[in-house]
Design a protein around this nucleic acid. Structure first.
Ligand SMILES: [Mn+2]
Ligand SMILES: [Mn+2]
Ligand SMILES: [Zn+2]
Ligand SMILES: [Zn+2]
Lengths: 144, 144
DNA sequence: TTTTTAAATGCTATCCATTTGCATTTAGAC
DNA sequence: GTCTAAATGCAAATGGATAGCATTTAAAAA
């Protein structure tokens, strides 16, 4: 995708095939992936890429706000997705790890308030809801 | 503290000296601590306690909502604090790891909305702001 | 109080996501 | 084409967190 090269240019990152590959995979998957997920998908696409390169690329992208992350509380893994222009928040199922994206941010005003109250220079925030998706609620209640 | 024994009783956890010790330390520190922080503080207090016991106790407490956690994005460690009755959100400094507690929750209504919209049974949420505290802003700008 | 038993603990080894060191390759400036 | 800093591969290391198992202990039962 040509757009991706622009992103890299804008971010002052060299346009390497691996970076473009990571962007491709994230784009077509359009969902959160762990570093290892990306590694496996890259292999399927032929690519000869090392896991540490994946980590390094993802670190670059996070720093440049090309990619955003969430932390899976149970598996302790970090998951990565293309940063939506309008950043999103999430419903995360504690059982099956399903992630639902919420559009819009309900706390912009609040962020402003606390930022000035505490003279804190806020760079970003996380707002994630943990619980059980519809499917897993049923499984869960049938277990009990 | 006598109150702590009640907490353990209510949580159906045996009242062991180690659990009471962990509660003591968390109470007097009144701040987030990593498992290792707790381990060191316990040692200072004489106590002969193993790190894995600390982890196991903290797991118990989290499950029973006696303790709540936040994840440090940079160090990847989990930090623990006594659960406030009114759960709190945080300003976390990306440079010095300082944590400022925010009182009150600005998203109760929003949580209701998305919970019913997506039929998602929300158990808890995280809302944390990452950025730079007043001190670190100054350091940072002087570096550049 | 003494007995009994499941829960809690200490110690050690282990796991596993992520990071790092270093030699080699490569993108992009000149 | 040359040159140089950035990017990469590979392997080893790191480090927070877990798990296994023998031993101790809280607290229920007798
Ligand atoms: Mn937001
Ligand atoms: Mn809240
Ligand atoms: Zn689920
Ligand atoms: Zn700071």
């Amino acid at each position: 995708m040509e757009k991706f090269k622009d992103w890299l240019t804008e971010a002052n990152l060299k346009k390497t095939k691996h970076r473009l590959l990571v962007l491709d995979i994230l784009y077509e998957t359009n969902d959160f992936l762990s570093a290892d997920d990306l590694f496996l998908k890259a292999k399927h696409k032929d690519a000869n890429i090392s896991l540490s390169t994946i980590y390094r690329i993802l670190d670059n992208f996070v720093e440049k706000n090309i990619v955003s992350t969430i932390n899976m509380e149970n598996t302790k893994q970090v998951y990565y997705e293309l940063a939506h222009q309008e950043h999103s928040h999430h419903l995360i199922c504690l059982n099956c790890n399903k992630v639902i994206h919420l559009k819009g941010c309900p706390i912009k005003a609040y962020e402003e308030t606390v930022s000035s109250k505490y003279r804190f220079n806020i760079e970003r925030h996380t707002l994630d809801f943990y619980g059980y998706c519809e499917k897993c609620q049923n499984k869960k209640s049938s277990k009990v």
